[in-house]
Design a protein around this nucleic acid. Structure first.
Length: 509
RNA sequence: GCCGCGUUGGUCAAGGGGUUAAGACGCAUCCCUUUCACGGAUGAAUCACGGGUUCGAUUCCCGUACGCGGUACCA
């Protein structure tokens, strides 16, 4: 296996729907590996199944990568020297390789119809073998160029009879390779079926396409999810037959990201209330919307971070990593071989940490976008950054900023009056009347002075500060939440503060 | 069924022949805070099971169990 050539890796999604967690993590590990080695990261569109074409899915993938900050060096969009980057546009390339295999006796034409295949599965189905494969046990009982007379095959071909090309798996050979994560992995070829390489419509299957394209695009390292491990022997053999094992990329199969039960699916997300896709995805056929991490209120920095450590860690106690740090520290041999269950609680913690970690000005800008999108109009004069700094400790998801800051921009819609009424009395009524008088006379309007005044008046009124602190909070904020109440008052300003106290006082009479 | 890959607290996980088996999330209790958070403290694992190898296995080997993945003219 060539390890000295330039590092070129690829992510090859099929544009059939939303891009989920595992996909983005695969992108991320590819990206990190490429950046770390000064290599190229290629995005190739695997759209060989025309029946599964979904409009918009390809564009959506690009949007997700752009949001996550993991943009490819070569792709349909960026271009590059190894295009086209969409397999449907490479259709003409594949047939010759399949034919070459047939000519060498490593593959064969199969004319079986879908019905005949179904029949075969019925006929050979037993309790011991519930899903019969098209393999060396059955291939000589089927309609293919292995057992048809040559003239018949030629005639069928000439008549353009629908057919596929299947690989002829050798019997009882051991095919193995060294996985960068799992070490040596091997398979007995007798147990692998004769996978279709070229479909009846002339399109390659994944198996042929991945090998041909990886070769043509000079891919040095091929990374993908563990679900591909069982078909690896087919790919290894294809490499051996077509281009020589020496040219084969190094493989790594990433552990699966699991949901509460098995492979994480968008169903899990819907069921347990957490996003699975990177960004919102609306199925154009059903109109069904699946929520994404972006829209849920995740920072791309946090998303990247949590994905990176789902299956990898640097061996220290560090948990927060920026993209740049990941590029520095990532290493394939510290990637786990076992699957990891996705933990939404921890995912939210990462977001919370990143909200605290982001530069204030940067965070403020993003919060402004969220608030604006929620319909708040925020004047440029508003001390937004100060407000954001004040509340960010209690935020996990970006939209939380709305609830935690609306009262700075609008009079609270509801006042939780029931929280104060039971313990309300004349002494408190008088206290607030006095407080208003005092506040109106204040010249320096700052939190410390406000608190000082407040406490002095409380003492003079024979009240403990705590007894009137909560009512003040309710008056200004509307509920039992938010940062230090005098900090809020300071930002609200004299007029607004007094106005709100008066208003609630009126409600309490 | 068969094939493959896995198995350290509820979750993510460090460690890797001799350790009090890190740390984080979550949970519980407590402290701080006259709101909610932040912060701090404390608590919870016979390292799946059974055999080896060894003076000694969580760590190495072999089985078993369990989990997951695959078993399509889908990727």
């Amino acid at each position: 296996m060539a390890t000295d050539k330039k590092v070129r890796v690829r992510f090859a999604p099929s544009p059939t729907g939303g891009l989920h967690l595992g996909g983005v993590r695969t992108v991320l590990y590819n990206y990190l590996f490429a950046r770390q080695h000064g290599g190229d990261f290629i995005l190739r569109i695997e759209d060989t199944d025309q029946t599964r074409f979904v409009p918009g899915a390809e564009e959506y993938i690009f949007q997700c990568l752009a949001w996550a900050g993991l943009e490819p060096d070569e792709s349909v969009k960026q271009g590059g020297a190894y295009g086209p980057y969409r397999q449907s546009e490479r259709k003409a390339l594949y047939r010759q390789y399949a034919e070459q295999l047939v000519a060498n006796g490593q593959a064969y034409y199969a004319f079986d119809t879908p019905e005949e295949l179904e029949q075969m599965r019925q006929d050979f189905k037993t309790e011991q073998n519930p899903s019969p494969q098209y393999d060396h046990h059955v291939r000589d009982k089927m309609r293919n160029s292995l057992n048809l007379q040559k003239e018949d095959v030629d005639r069928l071909l000439q008549d353009n009879t629908r057919h596929v090309i299947r690989i002829k798996m050798p019997e009882n050979e051991t095919v193995g390779f060294n996985d960068m994560i799992r070490g040596d992995v091997s398979f007995n070829t007798s147990l692998v079926d004769d996978k279709v390489l070229l479909k009846a419509d002339g399109m390659p299957t994944y198996h042929l396409a991945v090998v041909v394209d990886d070769y043509l695009m000079k891919i040095s390292h091929a990374f993908r999810g563990e679900e591909w491990l069982p078909s690896a022997p087919v790919h290894i053999l294809l490499w051996k037959y077509l281009y020589g094992e020496d040219h084969m990329p190094r493989w790594a199969h990433f552990p699966l990201i699991l949901g509460p039960g098995g492979k994480l699916s968008k169903r899990d997300g819907a069921k347990y209330g957490f996003p699975v896709f990177a960004m919102n995805w609306t199925d154009p056929r059903t109109g069904e919307l699946t929520e994404g991490f972006k829209e849920k209120g995740f920072l791309p920095e946090a998303f990247i971070n949590l994905l990176a450590v789902l299956g990898w860690n640097d061996g220290t106690e560090q948990e927060l990593f920026s993209l740049d740090e990941l590029i520095q520290k990532f290493s394939m041999d510290r990637v786990h071989s076992s699957g990891a269950k996705f933990d939404y609680e921890k995912a939210k913690w990462y977001n919370h940490e990143w909200i605290k970690k982001l530069a204030p000005a940067d965070l403020t800008q993003r919060v402004k976008e969220v608030l604006t999108a929620k319909g708040l109009s925020i004047s440029d004069k508003a001390p937004l950054q100060k407000i954001v700094e004040l509340v960010k400790d209690r935020i996990t998801l970006l939209p939380d900023f709305y609830d935690q800051t609306v009262y700075f921009f609008k009079v609270p819609e509801t006042i939780d009056i029931t929280a104060v009424r039971p313990k309300w009395n004349e002494a408190k009524q008088l206290f607030f009347a006095e407080l208003i008088r005092s506040y109106e006379l204040m010249s320096a309007w700052d939190a410390a002075a406000l608190e000082n005044d407040f406490k002095e008046i409380a003492a003079a009124s024979q009240l403990k500060p705590g007894e009137v602190m909560l009512p003040l909070r309710i008056m200004l904020v509307g509920g039992k939440f938010g940062p230090h109440v005098f900090d809020i008052a300071e930002i609200l300003g004299k007029e607004e503060t007094i106005q709100r106290i008066r208003h609630t006082l009126g409600l309490l009479i």
